[in-house]
Write a protein that binds this DNA or RNA. Structure first.
Lengths: 139, 139
DNA sequence: ACTTGGCTTCGAGCGCGCTCCAACGCCTAC
DNA sequence: GTAGGCGTTGGAGCGCGCTCGAAGCCAAGT
């Protein structure tokens, strides 16, 4: 059960050192987001201003890393990419948008709580079904 | 927050009386699954043996209702339709498949628990982000 | 010099789960 | 009898979020 979750927890402890950068492959490995998807995210505007090295290769900063990790968290809670985009646009628009961003997050937090409740509700149903199948099994 | 959840809870208290049947529109209303989707589910084999009235209209039984509700619970916990199909096939194959069905459910329950953990983990991140934005806001 | 392998771009393709359309049938009310 | 509304079918289309392929550049090893 700890598999995907462990990988996620590791995200928080694997940023590039300040000042150093990551290749796309390193980013993919540390964030769990494939290189294809990293390029895709950049293409659609979720990541902007990713630096390049002398050969034109992407060189991700600690900031880029942090953004990918946070976007990942929002994605895994079901925030659609359209909204991620909006959030990123607000980010890019500076301090004036702090309230709007906060509102988005508070709003989304409610949706996550609702998802948790639904999931728990469905889990109860499944538990009940399992019990009614005979009950002999992992507790 | 109780909106979707309330609708779900109502599912459990809105089956057709024993012996009576539901039109597709009534099913849609009570289960929250659209008529389009009910037909789709039948087409792909998730529902079989749905009775018809004299005019060829679908007449859903209490059993059909129960199945739709349970399938809904599995769907909302992310079980893909391919697996629902497998479950339904096992159901159709009779008592010999009880163990296999139970195994599927126990297995899926683990996945739901993992989802809950991931969701909670992401929620913590979001909470933290909200707090770091200033913290003034709904608790 | 040449191969290997990772990076680049652009654009097409895919799997999932619906969602909708067109053309038609049935049944009731006016 | 005719209009309106709900039902039927088969098949096409869609939105989402990737995912992949082709063609080519760059760096390092043998």
């Amino acid at each position: 059960m700890e598999d995907a979750l462990d990988r996620l927890r590791r995200q928080d402890t694997a940023p590039p050192g300040p000042g150093s950068t990551l290749s796309i492959a390193e980013m993919a490995e540390r964030t769990g987001v494939t290189a294809h998807t990293l390029r895709y995210y950049e293409r659609i505007g979720l990541l902007d201003g990713v630096a390049r090295d002398a050969s034109g290769y992407r060189a991700y900063s600690a900031g880029d890393y942090g953004r990918v990790v946070f976007l990942t968290r929002l994605r895994m809670t079901g925030m659609p990419i359209r909204e991620l985009l909006r959030y990123v646009e607000l980010l890019g628009a500076g301090d004036a948008t702090v309230d709007a961003r906060l509102a988005m997050l508070v709003n989304h937090r409610e949706s996550v709580r609702a998802q948790l409740a639904e999931l728990q509700f469905a889990l109860d149903t499944i538990d009940f079904k399992i019990a009614s199948y005979g009950g002999r099994c992992t507790p």
